[in-house]
Computed example of a mutant assay.
Amino acid sequence: MSRRGSDAITDDPHAGFDRAGARRRSRPRTKERPSYADAVRAIVVGVDRGRFRCRIEGQSQQVTAVKARSLPRGAVIVGDLVDVVGDTNGGDDALARIVGVAERSTVLRRTADDDDPYERPIVANADQLAIVAALADPPPRVGMIDRILVAAYDAGLDPLLVLTKSDLAAPAGLMATYRPLGLRVVAVEPGADLTELEAALAG
């Protein structure tokens, strides 16, 4: 049933629907990207389930940040120098955003193994790597030490071997093993003076 005129009735319930006006409107795309002139520099000190703990450069405060969508997956790792925008006050509810990553001076990678067939970057911009191994209980795993040394040398890091529990076993044998490499080795035991170790870590 239908009736013509201003108050016409039609069987089509959508007859008065303005399809042209109902089209989804969106802002036109642009190739211009934000300059992020207000971004502050920070270093990534921790990663936890997609959230990054960053320490603002020149300050002691830390902020929690997420990665901008423009950055690819895996683009941010511990040690990265990043550009951060948003709420950088460091409050409990504050959340900033990482919008840029500076070029890395070094990259330490975890080598592929049976559990993970891919080589993965784990730390950026480090200058030394301390390998901590017990001399006894449990005994040192020389193969593991060798593997970490290879990763350190490949990344351009200065390795340091720290041998603990020297009160239970003499370190001389293991020290002699790595002496040809010129590897720095420090042996410590409970209650010992750590001045030598602190100096080695300070570089």
Rank of each mutant, 00 (worst) to 15 (best):
183 L>R: 03
164 T>S: 11
135 L>F: 10
139 P>F: 11
147 R>H: 11
191 G>A: 05
164 T>H: 07
155 A>I: 11
156 G>S: 07
192 A>P: 08
135 L>H: 05
194 L>Y: 12
189 E>R: 13
183 L>E: 01
196 E>C: 10
190 P>G: 07
197 L>V: 08
198 E>F: 13
170 A>S: 15
181 L>I: 07
190 P>C: 02
158 D>H: 08
138 P>K: 03
142 V>G: 12
148 I>T: 11
184 R>N: 09
179 R>Q: 15
183 L>C: 07
148 I>L: 09
131 I>C: 00
189 E>W: 15
185 V>S: 10
197 L>D: 01
188 V>W: 03
157 L>F: 06
154 D>Q: 06
180 P>H: 13
129 L>W: 04
183 L>S: 00
130 A>G: 07
182 G>R: 04
133 A>S: 09
180 P>C: 15
168 L>H: 13
142 V>A: 07
173 G>F: 01
130 A>N: 09
187 A>S: 12
140 P>M: 02
150 V>T: 12
177 T>C: 15
193 D>C: 06
169 A>V: 04
155 A>V: 06
161 L>K: 01
160 L>C: 09
149 L>H: 00
199 A>M: 15
145 I>N: 00
166 S>P: 07
184 R>Y: 09
163 L>R: 00
129 L>T: 01
157 L>Y: 02
171 P>F: 05
199 A>K: 15
187 A>P: 03
149 L>W: 04
148 I>A: 06
